[in-house]
Design a protein around this nucleic acid. Sequence first.
DNA 1: CCTCGGGATTGACCAGGGTCAAGTTGAGCC
DNA 2: GGCTCAACTTGACCCTGGTCAATCCCGAGG
Lengths: 253, 253
Amino acid sequence: MDPGTNVLDLSQLRRSCSSCALSELCLPAGIGNDDLERLDTAVRDKRTIDRGSVLYRDGDPFEALYVVRSGSLKTFVQDEAGNVQVLGFHLPGEIIGFDALASDRHVSQAEALERSSICELPYARLQQVTGQVPALHRQLMRVISREVIEEHRHLAMMGRQQAQEQLAIFLKSLADRYQRLQRDSTALTLSMSRYDIANYLGLVVETVSRLFSRMEEMGVLEVNRKSVRIRRPDLLADLCRSGVMAPKQSGAG
Amino acid sequence: MDPGTNVLDLSQLRRSCSSCALSELCLPAGIGNDDLERLDTAVRDKRTIDRGSVLYRDGDPFEALYVVRSGSLKTFVQDEAGNVQVLGFHLPGEIIGFDALASDRHVSQAEALERSSICELPYARLQQVTGQVPALHRQLMRVISREVIEEHRHLAMMGRQQAQEQLAIFLKSLADRYQRLQRDSTALTLSMSRYDIANYLGLVVETVSRLFSRMEEMGVLEVNRKSVRIRRPDLLADLCRSGVMAPKQSGAG
DNA sequence: CCTCGGGATTGACCAGGGTCAAGTTGAGCC
DNA sequence: GGCTCAACTTGACCCTGGTCAATCCCGAGG
């Protein structure tokens, strides 16, 4: 690390896990500094992908896990008949690609919802490193387990009887994730389309659109295309539980 | 195998992974014989649990993973308000408990649907062994990944618009799992209640009951309480795709 | 034998949300 | 500027599946 640092060194620096703002949310969480450097050797240069471009698709051979550094992606499965099911929306710090561990092939697809940057973790390298660093191995298991738990949440949300509850829970959990990223958790930017949201929740797009309008009328949200401001987080939390709000008072226009 | 085998030796033999009929479906899949013996050292004596008894509940400290040897269990989450979501039904050869890897506490509950026997894999021991046997480590990751994929299937099923499609897919996938177990895949025994099935699919119990009746009328199934015979697997497969069957002919009566 | 009770089935009713169709908005492009 | 297209919104309609309630079934227990 001589003082004559040039541009390449800078990119090198930004690449490293130890200097990454996301490190506590990502794989490095709880890993010692020396081991972190080993982990760095498993990270291939990050790459940037455009909105709509595909990170991996169904059937692709398993080559790497991917960490979202910035931007966002959606993952989904699609059956022979073309039925799509959106599995998740992935924000910075989240790791995707675990579906391929079972069969060495991806069985889902990951697509960027906006221009995003990605850290690629070639699995062969990662395995070498986890072999040397038991803590990393444990952390990797923990991250997959988080994925399992996240899907439990998704299932519990879809199981709700009331559509409004579902959407409220979706927005609430998005707000929670914003908070972890230390963003303003009341000002959401929905990088995914209404269609994606609807599919994610097991609804149709018209229902989602109506629900946004209704929640705006109720004063819970302020919706403007992709930007959603949560005006009453307390009411939103209520909607997560009951679906319907407190009995309508004599409505004032 | 001398003829003088006594009961204790027999139970010993049956405990070992190498002699287990499920080994190819379970953790041992693809593990060499010598390594299998090491794996055996991580398996605590199997235990038998009765219908309704709980293997682990929400908040329990993470102690072990569990393999279903015989019988069946359900897993579910429950929120503060008491809303339950059934996550899965687990047949022999399946491993549960991964939800606790993330936080060292279980965040779901596992309950026996009938008298079942369980292999317990204390995680501390298992980690020692996976440290020595890289192939086992990989296999463990594969098994968790299968869990992730299974949940993708569950989500895709719940996302369906038609309740009949959902139930058809549920039965079909159960039949597929029977086949892997080399059971008769047309004679299902539903160890779970109608309530469990309904909750699993995001429906209410009455709907499930009506669907069973309807599919029986259609000649697809023969339903008798917990036993379901699939009379027309071909039609069942159709229902998985379309939800509705061939257009109704001129209805007689 | 009868009763009891939980699970399951069936019917009647109805509303939440799906379907279809029209209209609006805004970004990109000529 | 106006055109086009996709994403989104809104309205009208009505069907699927949820709700409520009665009944049935079967095993357990007296």
